[in-house]
Simulated scan of single mutants.
Amino acid sequence: MTPPLNAAALEPLNTGALPAHWNRGIDKAAIDRAIARALEAVDRNLAHFGDAFPMPSSQGGVYPAMDNTEWTNGFWTGMLWLAYELTGAARYRDAGLRHVASFHARQRDRINVNHHDLGFLYSLSCVSGYQLTGEPLAAEAALGAARMLLERYLPGAGIIQAWGELSDPAQRGRMIIDCNLNLPLLYWASDFTGDPAFRTAADRHIEAAARHIVRPDGSTFHTFFFDPASGAPLHGKTHQGYADDSCWARGQAWGISGFPLVYRHNGDGRLVDLGKVLANYYLNRLPADGICYWDLVFTSGPEPRDSSGAAIAACGLLELARNLPLADPLRPAYERAAAGMVLTLAGDYADTSGTPGAGLLKHGVYHKPNGVGVDEACIWGDYFYLEALVRLTRTWRPYW
């Protein structure tokens, strides 16, 4: 029998504490209305931004425009590709291909690529573009980004360093849970080229994340440090959560989504088991309406919610559910929770102002400790909300 990756225990899921209306299942008409409203927002913003990109979070409910220089730019392009899949409309394809050219230039000129978020950037812009159109430039750009991501792999520690120069002592040996969703770019590159080095790095990184970022109670550290030479685990630390020993909600959502997404690529069923541990911990700590506070240490009170974390978690629950046996009672529970979460977002958190440049979802949080993007739209929240709507309407082949 294969030993578990982690000693974390699976909490029983307290379904009685989840919103009662989540048990009604998928309301197809409501999902269709939410998609129509989301596409209207994408069209408004496509006209508003042109070939520019939204900033990571809104200011006063509206995203400022920016060039292709942030770690978040791929989420907007990913929304264009999702809109193209939903409609087949050429305007989304054409805009997405213009973005592909921009992303190709970015990796060629190495513009702000000194971080692990190359997967967020290039899986959603260029792997997706290649998958949907066969555009060779998209594959070339994605492969260039994957090579840069592989440069960040520290063999001694078996991790991909998150941020900064590899020689920076403040960042040396740091991994973060967000990187789970950057790993599919490496698996794609390995399959595309036949080079096992990409896959080996991704396999070792996800095992380190499973063993050290996930705590015994099923919560997660945001970041974890290793000795880069020996690989010895050192300590966990938060960057955007409430405290080092709390559980940053969006980080837990990255784990719920990322572990089963990596299972798609490496077939290690222990990642699905671990995804269940993280999912139950998350679902058992939600407030009455089921939309998380910015840190799971909070379950009531005046602290801000994070709609973006909820959208990521919904996608993760749907990915997790599809990898569970039909007889597993958690499979329908996760499907109902994900659908309920998305419908709650659509009903109570969607931006219905019709303002050009506004996000799809209100009440997100970018970086609460630094006071950035608090109670604003976050572009990743918009992306994952639309991805979740797509997942609820079809068997969807992820860009991840």
Score class of each variant (00 low, 15 high):
I35G: 03
D27T: 04
R24L: 14
V62K: 02
I31V: 15
V113H: 06
R93V: 06
M66Y: 10
G50R: 01
T133L: 05
L137I: 08
N45G: 06
Y63S: 11
P64Q: 07
G119R: 00
V42P: 02
G88P: 08
P64M: 08
H104N: 14
P19H: 13
L132C: 03
I26K: 13
H99S: 14
A30T: 06
P56L: 04
D43I: 05
G25H: 12
G134M: 05
A52K: 10
M79H: 07
A20I: 02
A38D: 02
S57H: 15
L80A: 12
H104M: 08
H115Y: 05
R37H: 10
L86G: 06
A29N: 11
A17W: 05
Y122T: 01
W76F: 14
A41S: 12
L18A: 09
Y122R: 04
F75T: 01
Q131R: 14
A52P: 00
D94I: 09
L86I: 07
R106G: 07
R91Q: 10
G61L: 06
L46W: 00
D117Q: 03
W81L: 07
S57I: 03
Y84R: 10
L124N: 04
A34Y: 04
F103N: 09
L39P: 02
A65G: 12
D117E: 11
L82G: 02
V113G: 09
L46R: 13
L132H: 02
I35A: 03
A141M: 01
A52M: 12
L132V: 03
L86W: 07
T133S: 04
R37Q: 13
A142G: 08
G96V: 00
P64G: 07
N23V: 11
H115L: 03
V100G: 05
A41G: 08
P19Q: 11
L137C: 06
A90S: 14
S128R: 14
W22H: 13
A36D: 11
F75V: 06
A138Q: 03
T72I: 04
H99G: 06
L118Y: 00
G74K: 01
R98F: 04
F120E: 03
D51L: 11
P56N: 04
A38Y: 03
T133M: 07
R37L: 12
A95L: 05
A29C: 06
H104S: 13
S128C: 11
T87M: 07
L82H: 11
W81C: 01
